[in-house]
Design a protein around this nucleic acid. Structure first.
Lengths: 316, 316
DNA sequence: ATGTTATATAGATATTTATCTATAGGAAGC
DNA sequence: GCTTCCTATAGATAAATATCTATATAACAT
């Protein structure tokens, strides 16, 4: 059998003929003329190299080889129907996979979106990468992920961004700290205290430092810890003060207080970033749609800042 | 996805590309040029309506949709490989079906061939029809079977024939019959006896009657029985005499003797008949080959008369 | 026998396909 | 930055395919 000239169309026609038992009827069903179907059958028979049909009592019946071809054709066409279904699911964002890269701090919030999404779309596989801003920038350069979450986007030359959440940075001190009782504090008053800082490359540190620079201030003694958690616990235990994303604090934080420093909180927004030079996977697109629609049910209203519809409209 | 323009060839090319990871390498393997393969990929991608491959680290990797297409393609191509195997088996006569029509008398012998054949080719389904000559002629006219066994072929206009077995007709009497002791009997001496005859339409009867006519003889009293078995038992019980195929007698037949009538046995030969205006099924062809090769191990040498090679050569 | 219906063949044509060579564009390696 | 290997595009062409209309042939039913 010569498979080279075998077309799916040919199999469709053949199946129609076997199913209807006559060439003419099959032609009607396929919206073709009878000679067309006859020709196709002839070609198919030649490709197979074996008679496929024989007429008895005015109907066409498949020969031995013809029956097997019919079976094979049905299976094969069915397989491609399945493939078609698979494609629709992919396109609808109901299945597939995407990967998302988060700066550390965002990991306190993103699960609130990812959880409901994966419950709604259990067939979608999500890979989450977490690291500090610098590491995420590298991933972005290398185009390693479908989605990125930054508070300050990288150069937007190859990217589109959409804000979705406020990310205020606040100054924190241990409960009972002398400044904790004050109603209004000037940042300069904190500079004598030891400050706990994230590592260079962290977005939180970058934001804090550029804010300090704007204010013309310089830090006193510091201690560097490459983890928000470590810093939070450090502050609680009196190791020093810190400027942290408010999201890092648990809902109840009896051992930590937010200091009413003038000029704080430093306002920033997390945003979803997608590369504009890379086709966004259907699954990632589906997640963005999901986020746009469900964000308000997943996060506290005071952090809400949903500009994802704008991003989505740019993606279509 | 548009299945209309999907070719098996296209899938083969696609599979080669995914398997080798580069277009150029696939082109080499397929003995095509690289642009050809690129074009095919492009067409395939358009038919599917979704990007199929993406290049990372200098190799091409299938996308989500591409992976599924790869799976589907492998399955589908595999299914048609199986179909190909099926075809070879059909063509080799190793599987399939055929039907064979036998005149009554041949049923004593044909199982000796059909048994070993079906042991050698268990996947071949055989249908056997048995009846008298007239009934078999009707089946022949209607082209109802692949093979026919006659002693005298019908008009050979639409048929090819090949002898394979002697079928001598002998006169039989019950042991102890007055003529049973004689060394030489003239047929005319039997005419007073009651003769047991098969029904009109039987080949045995036809042969016997035309032989009688040649000899210018006319039968005396007769009794008609539409079965060789009934006649054999009738003769054994003294109901009369008969002229029967020697094959009808069991190897040991203590209650029946063959009379040495001058001019007997009437020599005839069974032959396989195939219609020349109808394609012989591979399975039937395979059976004829089997018969040609194994006949000598299946029947007693004295009956052997194998001219099937001549028939086979005419069929190729 | 004689219409009727189904199938096959012939002739025609626009479209598509397979395939090449030549060349341009890109990415990876040194 | 240059070279090399890979891929994509363009241009060209012979072949094949899909499809039609018109007609011949075969099979069936009355």
């Amino acid at each position: 059998m010569n498979i080279r000239h075998l077309t799916f169309r040919l199999l469709q026609v053949y199946v129609a003929v076997v199913a209807s038992g006559t060439v003419s009827e099959a032609a009607r069903r396929l919206h073709l003329t009878q000679p067309t179907v006859s020709m196709q059958l002839k070609r198919l028979g030649e490709a197979v190299g074996e008679p496929l049909l024989e007429s008895r009592q005015g109907r066409l019946f498949p020969t031995e080889a013809g029956s097997e071809l019919y079976r094979a054709s049905r299976e094969v066409l069915g397989r491609f129907d399945d493939f078609d279904d698979y494609l629709s699911a992919l396109r609808g964002g109901e299945r597939g996979r995407f990967s998302i890269a988060l700066v550390n701090t965002a990991q306190y919030v993103l699960p609130r979106l990812l959880g409901p999404h994966s419950r709604a779309f259990p067939e979608v596989e999500v890979t989450v990468h977490i690291g500090n801003r610098r590491q995420m920038l590298t991933r972005f350069e290398r185009q390693e992920d479908d989605l990125y979450v930054f508070s300050h986007p990288p150069s937007l030359a190859h990217a589109r961004a959409g804000r979705f959440l406020r990310n205020p940075l606040v100054a924190v001190a241990p409960r009972g700290h002398p400044l904790a009782a004050r109603e209004r504090i000037d940042m300069s008053e904190l500079l004598g205290e030891r400050m706990l800082l994230r590592e260079p490359g962290s977005a939180t540190r970058m934001l804090f430092e550029s804010w300090l620079q704007e204010q013309g201030l310089t830090l006193g003694p510091t201690l560097q810890m490459a983890s928000n958690e470590a810093i939070r616990v450090g502050v609680a235990s009196g190791l020093g003060l810190a400027v942290l994303s408010e999201h890092v604090l648990p809902p109840e934080h009896p051992d930590i207080v937010i200091l009413p420093v003038v000029g704080l909180p430093i306002e920033s927004h997390w945003q979803f970033i997608v590369r504009s030079d890379r086709r966004l996977s259907h699954a990632a697109h589906g997640f963005l749609r999901f986020a746009a629609g469900h964000l308000h049910t997943c996060v506290e209203p005071r952090f809400l800042s949903n500009e994802l519809d704008g991003l989505l409209s740019k993606l279509n």
